[in-house]
Computed example of a mutant assay.
Amino acid sequence: MEGGGGSVRRSVEDVFKDFKGRRAALIKALTTEVEDFYNQCDPDKDNLCLYGLPSEQWEVNLPAEEVPPEIPEPALGINFARDGMQERDWLSLVAVHSDAWLSAVSVYYGARFGFDRNDRKRLFNLMNELPTIFEVVTGTAKKQVKERSTVTNNSSSKSKSGGKSQRTSDSQPKMSKLVQPKDEEEGQDEEEDEEHGETLCGSCGGIYTAESSDFWIACDVCENWFHGKCVKITPARAEHIKHYKCPSCSKRARI
């Protein structure tokens, strides 16, 4: 997003779109592309920062030289702690700082584009609807979804007859291994729709909605669901995959 100089004014939706693009990029760096990110954070190099770009691409680079910078800068020197911590703890720390940076950038744009109280509140509510990067990286978001699904299951089972088998409350919704969410069969149980709506992509953290036409695929190892585009799997390619492993599970298998 370009600066807000002169008479240019961006909307809340513009800033939120910028936020989502940067967020998706950072989540990729810390999940599906974590091996590449880890290798780029060499502790022997100078202070490095993790940047998420609106185009959903990320980069590890030196901080901006100009003072003050065009937009707030990410946490400095994340590479120095890489070998001094457990990898999981280090990634969690980077995730927390990434969340703080995303908020700072959005607040900066809100101020620069002259958002009033209502605009700022609407922007915050839009941002707050999505799980934080920390929640996605640590799996906290998935646990929260399971807890909500358990409450939904318990509530629904009291009012529904036993004609259909109920899902276990400790698992993600089972649509099918390969799924086009919009093509679900008519007459599907309301409970299934509610649970599907709480499914998160294990890569970008996006929430499944019945209205979406996005292609999804489930990992046969960790049972997490992913947008096909996030793990670079097309419906045609998926037809030839008997047992799919997501990037994280594939990496663990190699280790």
Rank of each mutant, 00 (worst) to 15 (best):
I133F: 08
L102A: 01
P173I: 14
Q172W: 14
D189N: 08
K142P: 03
P74M: 03
V105Y: 09
N128E: 01
P173L: 13
Q166S: 14
G52F: 02
A81I: 07
E56G: 01
L126G: 13
F113K: 03
N125T: 10
D189L: 04
N61T: 12
F115H: 09
V137Y: 10
E70G: 00
S159N: 06
A81S: 05
K174Y: 10
V60P: 15
A104W: 05
F113Y: 05
G163V: 08
L91W: 12
Q166Y: 13
W58I: 09
Q172V: 13
L130K: 10
T140G: 11
L102G: 05
P131R: 00
L76F: 07
F80D: 02
N128V: 05
L102D: 03
I71Y: 12
Q57F: 00
F80S: 08
W90I: 06
Q57R: 09
M85R: 15
G84W: 04
A64R: 11
A141C: 06
V145L: 00
V136L: 07
K143E: 11
P69Q: 01
E185Y: 10
A95K: 01
V96T: 14
K160I: 10
K160L: 09
M85P: 07
K121A: 09
G77R: 10
G139K: 09
P63N: 12
K143S: 15
F80Q: 06
N61G: 02
K174L: 12
A75K: 15
V137R: 13
H97A: 13
P63C: 08
P63M: 06
S156W: 09
L53D: 05
L178E: 07
E56T: 01
N128M: 04
T150D: 09
T132D: 04
G77S: 01
D89N: 15
S149N: 11
E59K: 02
S176H: 09
W101I: 02
L102E: 03
S157K: 04
K182V: 15
L102Q: 02
G163D: 06
W58E: 01
G162S: 12
Q188H: 08
R82I: 05
L123A: 04
D83S: 14
E70N: 02
V137L: 01
W58D: 05
T132V: 08
A81T: 15
A64P: 03
E70F: 09
E184P: 13
F124H: 08
V60Q: 03
M175P: 14
E73F: 04
I133T: 12
S92K: 13
V67P: 05
M175I: 06
P181W: 05
K158A: 03
A100T: 08
S155G: 04
D183K: 15
E185K: 10
P173Q: 13
L62V: 07
A64Y: 07
M127Y: 07
T168L: 12
L123D: 01
P173S: 05
L62P: 03
A75F: 13
A111D: 11
P181V: 02
E59Y: 01
P173C: 08
S171L: 15
S171C: 14
K143W: 06
